[in-house]
Design a protein around this nucleic acid. Structure first.
Lengths: 257, 257
DNA sequence: CGCTCGTTTGATATATTTCAAGAATTGTGG
DNA sequence: CCACAATTCTTGAAATATATCAAACGAGCG
């Protein structure tokens, strides 16, 4: 499946290509971005809270998560990232990072100097626009996350996360939504949905007992997608994961009628 | 108070000017943006969930809030906006809006066609950068909001919101942090911090009883800023509200040594 | 094989919600 | 400017979802 000669930034092209039609020149520009490939182990940090990152970071393979801690020791996971995600368009402009990003599993990343990203964004507006979209989509996922944590009960919250993850995996071409490995411990899951590990465990069990999902190790199989979506109060539209949702026929982007 | 001859987009220039140095040509470009000024009453909508907005929207005066509802009827307020905030850089690019924006009080807004904003961003990279920065700052506020709702107890949550609001008011030059009117009902406050109105009320009372704040109607006076910040687990830095990260000794806040 | 890390389950505690009703404030029409 | 209606705020008592504490079980790994 993986082409031997694939350029490390290939996933970036693919991802941005989801939002707009990238021409050959755009692709070439991306491929000639200076970048440095790295293999990272699970647990290694990509960004430290308080640090001033010099690179944006493309996730080539594996999973990562963004989190931040409260004074009482509580940790909140704000997002989970997968292949093609540009992890730090954010903080590279903001200066001091206000959160951590850490590998969830082992994987490959490409580090791109902030300055190069910024220059490219304005030299090639189509790319710039796509990157902007990218950060906006991330924003929409954040908003859904806030609503999830703020106004839904444990069962709904967890179901929602399972749905979201399933859908995003599909979009990233990492697998079928119906059955996938959730690469995170229940403790981490608890920090993502703002619950206790114990309660996450019980809730997961109940979802399984009710015949909505089944589990073996960390592999989640969605038994009844339709019902799960209902329980999860899940609205795929809100994640803006397909181009139809975008307002713009982007410059030079012929829209399929 | 209001200069008669002030251009409606003045607050936008001021706001973007916080993030970067805008030259005269940049300012002129902004001022020549096509725009339409409107007076809105409290409760009126700026953006409807499910709609496809055609305008970005600069808040000139008054307050607005962004919210979204869960299937169980629960409402979550995701952010509160004030003078100078560019409300919908977001959804104007994303197409279908995934949330509502509504006026909290009466106020003035300027509507700017999406396309004009976008063009400007790429014609004048400095402005584009500032707008990008603006959306990133908003993101940082979101993250803090998630942490707040997810991992802090009622008391801390509310204290945190009070601190955040105080600081943002100062940055927007809308008043002194030490004492200000919180232009929202306790029910709305509840929807912002993901609690029950009843519990918000009790918690507010407790903060007052403990001598951290005092209240008359909706006017909050911060009696002991230092202690409140501690209780609130508040870190101004994380909001990225200043260009250099200057740690703000707030204007007018009576500091007991 | 024994250790560590993650999961599972039970019993109990608690923060927050829910329900309910009265007081205060704001708005409105006469 | 008053009287009435409608919000908004406040307080009490009871219910409940979730947290906390604790312990056993299982799987991967050197």
């Amino acid at each position: 499946m993986s082409q031997i000669s694939a350029h490390p930034l290939e996933p970036m092209v693919r991802k941005l290509g989801l939002w707009t039609e990238l021409g050959a020149p755009d692709r070439d520009e991306i491929f000639s971005l200076p970048c440095q490939q790295r293999h990272l182990e699970a647990g290694q940090y990509l960004v430290w809270d308080g640090d001033t990152p010099q690179h944006s970071c493309l996730l080539i393979s594996g999973f990562a998560f963004r989190h931040k801690s409260a004074g009482n020791g509580g940790r909140q996971i704000m997002s989970i990232h997968m292949k093609g995600d540009l992890i730090d368009l954010q903080n590279s402009l903001l200066g001091v990072a206000d959160h951590n990003v850490q590998m969830l599993t082992a994987g490959e990343v490409a580090l791109i100097p902030v300055q190069a990203v910024r220059d490219l964004a304005f030299r090639r507006p189509t790319i710039g626009m796509a990157m902007w979209y990218e950060t906006l989509v991330e924003g929409s996922i954040f908003r859904e996350w806030v609503l999830n944590i703020g106004r839904r009960d444990a069962r709904t919250r967890i179901a929602h996360l399972l749905c979201e993850f399933a859908l995003r995996l599909e979009v990233a071409e990492l697998g079928q939504a119906a059955s996938y490995e959730l690469p995170i411990t229940q403790e981490q899951l608890a920090d993502a949905v703002a619950l206790t590990p114990v309660h996450v465990n019980r809730t997961l069990k109940r979802l399984a007992d009710d015949g909505l999902i089944s589990r073996t190790k960390r592999i989640i199989t969605i038994v009844d997608w339709k019902e799960l979506v209902k329980v999860a109060d899940f609205q795929p539209r809100d994640l803006h994961l397909d181009r139809q949702n975008f307002q713009t026929p982007l410059r030079g982007a012929p829209q399929p009628a």
